[in-house]
Design a protein around this nucleic acid. Structure first.
Ligand SMILES: [Mn+2]
Ligand SMILES: [Mn+2]
Ligand SMILES: [Zn+2]
Ligand SMILES: [Zn+2]
Lengths: 125, 125
DNA sequence: TCAGTAATAGGAACCATTACCATTATTATG
DNA sequence: CATAATAATGGTAATGGTTCCTATTACTGA
């Protein structure tokens, strides 16, 4: 069974209060201020546990480090190629496309992921 | 200037004749049969050179390792969560969505990437 | 033909993530 | 409350994909 440790609580609390899609490293830096001797392994272990239990989502695109967010309704992302930040995009999620692809391919389509790339406002100047 | 080496030629030749979106490791295994003492560094170096020159695309597909393909018209992918294989999807590419997101966010949208996940035919049984 | 230099092989380094393990802390139960 | 079972931790080593380094090789333009 899952225990409620102060480490796990602090990680969840931070994720619940940010929209920044932080990396494990950023989470580590933030939580370290509250629990100075926390280890990075604990960050990763908890993020994986929370992902398994459906409370956290891992955004991982190869070529970049993984980013994490509190599990929420399906949505799309924008990644700035300059600064690396990730933003939510409120474009409506098209569910019908999964069925269409399933029909045309014969594959079982469970989900799709759409991500935009470019330059955020700050990085355009 | 770029030179034509047998290593580079063999890598390109293999990529030109497969639709499998191979990883660097797979390319290494295949090309090793033709050039037994080729090194993995040469595979990676050439894949990067070919990417820079626009002949090869590196797929930033969710998962752990990078996959490569010959540069071609923009298209979407499906990744089987069981066997890990990547397939092309011939769903038409929606270009208007980039502009729509650009307008609503103020970001400069350069491209988008859509990827489906699920089970391929083989893995459904 | 050959000098200039791009590319190679092999191995070390890098770095995000995972694995290991002795110790600590949470929690179900009496 | 006391306690025993064991989940979780901190610290560190290991892993694995990828990049970097360097002496040597081999393209290629002149
Ligand atoms: Mn998000
Ligand atoms: Mn493809
Ligand atoms: Zn930016
Ligand atoms: Zn499959």
């Amino acid at each position: 069974m899952h225990r409620e440790t102060k480490q796990r609580t602090a990680i969840l609390k931070y994720l619940n209060n940010t929209k920044s899609h932080p990396t494990a490293d950023i989470i580590y830096d933030v939580v370290k201020k509250i629990i100075p001797n926390i280890s990075k392994g604990t960050i990763y272990r908890n993020l994986n546990v929370l992902k398994e239990s459906g409370q956290v989502t891992r955004l991982n695109i190869k070529g970049t480090v993984s980013r994490y967010e509190i599990k929420q309704a399906s949505h799309y992302h924008f990644r700035c190629e300059q600064c690396g930040r990730v933003f939510d995009i409120d474009e409506p999620v098209d569910k019908s496309i999964d069925e269409r692809v399933a029909k045309s391919t014969g594959f079982k389509v469970i989900r799709h992921q759409l991500e935009f790339r470019g330059l955020c406002k700050d990085c355009q100047r």
